[in-house]
Design a protein around this nucleic acid. Sequence first.
DNA 1: AGCACGCCGACT
DNA 2: GTCGGCGTGCTC
Length: 821
Amino acid sequence: MTARDPFPSEARDDLLVEVAVALPLFGRYTYAVPAALREMVAVGRRVLVPFGRRRVTGYVLGFAADAPAAALKQIEGLLDPDPLFPAAMLPFFQWISDYYMHPLGEVLQAALPTGINVADQQLVSLTDEGREVLPEQARTPWERAVVERLSRGACRLPVLQRLGGDDFSRTALQQWEQKGWVTRQNTLGGGRIRPKTERFVRPLTEPASQERLSAPRRALLAVLAQRGAMAVSALKAHIPTAADLVRRMAADGQVAIEWRAVYRDPLGAPITPDNPPAPTPEQQRALEGMGAAIGKGYRTFLLVGVTGSGKTEVYLRLAAEALARHTTVLVLVPEIALITQTERAFRARFGRQVALLHSGLSDGERLDQWQRIRNGEVAIAIGARSAIFAPFEQIGLIIVDEEHDDAYKQEGALRYNARDLAVVRARQAEAVAVLGSATPSLQSAYNAQIGKFERINLFERVDQRRMPEIFVQDLTDLREERGSRRFLTAALTEGVRHCLEQKEQVLLFLNRRGFANALICAACGQAVQCDRCDISLTYHQQSNAYKCHYCGFSQAAVARCSRCGSNRINRLGIGTEKLAAWIQELFPTARVARMDRDTTRRKGALVKILKALRERRIDILVGTQMVAKGHDYPYITLVGIICADLSLSLPDFRAGERTFQLLAQVAGRAGRGQRPGRVVLQTYNPLHFSITAARDQDYDAFYRQEIQFRQALGYPPFTRMVQVRITGRDQKGVIAHARRLGETGSALQQADPAYGELVLLGPIEAALARIADHHRWQLLIKGPRVAALHRFVHQLLFGPDAPTPKSGIRVAVDVDPVFLM
DNA sequence: AGCACGCCGACT
DNA sequence: GTCGGCGTGCTC
């Protein structure tokens, strides 16, 4: 890319731009800019370009010095009235493209608001001749379905394809076209999300000439004189017949109608402004160090604050500091379905200066929040991982709350980690990054240890609230027990009873939903498994169904054993549904509620549960890890962790880290109000350091142990990893391609001594070998240095010797994977 | 991704 | 002998 003067005088007649298209292509394409667009084209602009025999969305990367050999085409148009992001963000997107080995055009598409891109789609319609002939010519069922649909009007090709199912043949359709029965034409599709505009009325008539007007017209002008130009919809509140009246008055030249952009408002109920509490001396020290750094170049701080130490207040004051220095602030929070405490706190302190970018927004609302940021109407944006792309200029501060949370890792097509990108963006913008957590990720704590980050501690709880007392209960002795006695120890049930007597609330945490997750044939011992995944099904009592938690498959719970045909299936194991039933049986008068994905799927359901908790209409809350995130429970004084080991035994080197974080976070839910909290932590591994460290709320003890284990086994943060996953319906094809990649990798490694330090693991079948009928194999590559590792993987997948996957086989790269199963 | 071109098996 | 499958290659 050659960035230069947008209007180079010597090249006025052949201005060339380099463009990335929103397709899975790594190339850059050169286009000529027609004279009419010359003034408007700029780096970062979204453009419509001809590409092959259709038109697609592209992004201007820069100006080109000379044309390539290939014939040039012209840009067809600009897609936005104003640039969607500052050109200064382009190096950030380029960095993401390089680091995560993902095409730049797709990075941009993923970063910008969804639903705005356009591309040509083929629109198929019947000709007059086809209308007569085809109904008789259509033989097969799919042909009949397609012709029936076409007889009702033109239709997009992908819609027809879906209608025709697997039998659909494009060649057959081409034939119909040759015979003159159907025609195809390109039409621009997509772009369904646009800025919202409303009709506004502006008065034109001078006051003196109003006397001749009718009473309603005079009334309307009076409202406008008082309020200024108004949306027609708002005017209706004053004058019910406004819509019609305005139209007639506009025709008579008394008012002008104009379309103006308006913002869809996602903020919902207003939040009352807070009274900033005075910072504690400890908070003050933390603020002085970090606040003074804002505006003076790049730095990253790791803010380690125990629960209740007032991290949020530190964030708020830092944000105020950044605003005072005329810089903008980006706040990332873990993705949860609901507004978080952090979000609420920022809105209470900064009001309408805050833009929201969480997942609860519609695509339209999200676009509007984006535009508010882009237009400089807000100085703070707060949101989940994709908010890292917020189009701010002059960023002074990026805060990542609960930085250890796995939710910052985006899975799917472009796999990025928003926490890592926060540091990258801060570095590029010469800003300050603050990563906050009570239980930092090993990676971040290590970065602080080696001096890449600066660690700041908050050890004191505000108001001198005591940390909860944690009792570890060994479950091993109960192994022989059956049913509820196996999981509900005397210590826990006594604690619950005591709480209920005191009219206090109880939280019971079990990291598994459903009723029973081990469905074993009573006759032959065979486990009931999903047909489409290699995963045991879980019984759900409420829906009386066996469900797969990986692909969503569900079948009525009357199935017979697939091996011996017996219909006696034992329902072993435990999930939140069964736990809630047991507890209700044990405490018949208690009001028990359950909070997991099953009970909060419906919109508003989670709010209802939280509201009932706050109003003390719930005595015992049973929940999965959902309860550990982002909510305050002021009346809960007892937390019961039913089985702390569920996440400990997963085949993933981060299992210990995740378990520690989860337990420490759940335990932190106890006693956040006035009363001190108690935690009963039940486990089969009372001596495991993840458990003992969580019991002692001792992060550093956990870190010291875990970091040794990582070093000894060569895991991150001492190495970097890239996972290559091969998936497809055809098992043989998946295995074959995985092996070819493995062989290519070995050959590459032998050929270049620089790759000697890399470790290739696999190819092997993934721990979850099949999900939704897709077989999964993987290759894991480890190395101490990121440059060599990435160069190797790039060569393996995109180099000259890279094997090309057969159709139906997909290869996905996951740089710095978080979930290894 | 989407679309066209080009080479091998089952039908008129 | 064609029709029609989908492997391969390209898009400024």
